[in-house]
């Protein structure tokens, strides 16, 4: 990026780049930051009934949330879900891309099958997987037919166990087993997209480079680790951001598939916020949830931005 400094344009042109992105910046300033400011302001008020009440109450909405069983569960679930979802989607997407990239027959067919779930809406995905992972019907019927003992069938999204279940605050910390079912559904939907992105990346890696390494006696694994993976780095970066943005806001799919779940094992802040705001009319509390979600995001995205921008500058 530093190289652009060498370029010399006629002076009158120097402003053009800025002018070209100005409309976008203004729109974002209003629609994103203006509304975030509004939400932040509401989160500090007492607007917890239908009647708009903008009395300032400080951080009491936040204080309530942090000692709320449901919200504590939500925070745990979001962190666990985001990590599982991203790792699984990226891993599986990369695997699919590597498989499809092997000059196979009917490549287009396989590609289309893997990418097809993305065409469905989250609500449809949620409903279908709710059926498939239903512990009394669905996939368990098949497992049973294959000889699994009835008592040992997975309970999928109705399981209330949390592994390892260290008690922290009011809740148990660990991985809620029920979330794994949700991860399966989301990976089904999104890994095709990861595959497509990686496929584009893989095709961009020059064959000579790989061949040269192989000639030098590098194993396939070394070629993968030393040449392919680094080249895919920017794609992984974009994917992480895109998938995080999906996972932190996930709402439709969970709403359709599991709801909050018994003991809130599959609840996420998005669902809580929607229910508390529009069913319970606790606008201020809903706004506080939104602000905490944004805070979580910034913890994650600011380091990413710093590192990726540093890379760009070097």
């Amino acid at each position: 990026m530093t190289r652009t400094k060498h370029s010399r344009l006629p002076k009158s042109d120097a402003l053009i780049p800025v002018l070209m992105i100005l409309p976008s910046l203004i729109a974002i300033a209003i629609f994103v930051y203006g509304f975030i400011a509004w939400t932040g302001y509401i989160s500090l008020t007492d607007w917890n009934t239908l009647v708009r009440n903008l009395d300032f109450v400080g951080l009491s909405n936040y204080a309530f949330l942090f000692q709320d069983f449901r919200f504590q569960s939500d925070l745990r679930n979001t962190v666990v879900f985001t990590i599982l979802f991203i790792v699984a989607t990226i891993g599986f997407g990369l695997l699919l891309a590597m498989l499809v990239d092997r000059r196979i027959r009917a490549e287009a067919l396989f590609r289309n099958i893997f990418i097809f779930p993305m065409a469905l809406s989250f609500i449809v995905t949620g409903v279908v997987w709710q059926w498939i992972l239903n512990p009394t019907t669905g996939v368990n019927l098949i497992l049973q037919a294959l000889g699994a003992a009835k008592g040992h069938l997975p309970k999928w999204y109705i399981s209330t166990s949390i592994v390892p279940g260290i008690s922290g605050g009011q809740i148990e910390l660990g991985i809620p087993i029920a979330l794994i079912a949700v991860v399966i559904a989301t990976v089904w939907q999104m890994s095709g997209f990861a595959m497509a992105m990686y496929l584009a990346g893989l095709r961009g890696i020059s064959d000579e480079l790989k061949e040269a390494a192989r000639v030098d006696g590098a194993s396939e694994w070394t070629v993968f680790r030393r040449i392919i993976l680094p080249q895919l780095h920017p794609i992984t970066g974009s994917l992480v951001i895109m998938l995080t943005h999906i996972s932190l806001k996930i709402f439709d799919l969970i709403y359709a598939m599991t709801g909050p779940g018994a003991m809130f094992v599959t609840d996420v802040p998005g669902v809580y916020m929607f229910e508390t705001t529009f069913r319970g009319n606790h606008y201020a509390q809903g706004a506080a949830i939104a602000m905490i979600m944004l805070l979580l995001v910034s913890l994650l995205i600011i380091p990413y931005l710093k590192s990726s921008l540093k890379e760009g500058a070097s």
Binding site: F69, A262, G280
Partner: peptide
């Protein structure tokens, strides 16, 4: 009762069914 109370009752019941 008000919807705000109802959402809280629903939350209590979500836990009560299991616990």
């Amino acid at each position: 009762a008000a919807e705000g109370f109802l959402t809280q009752v629903n939350q209590v019941m979500t836990i009560f069914v299991t616990k």
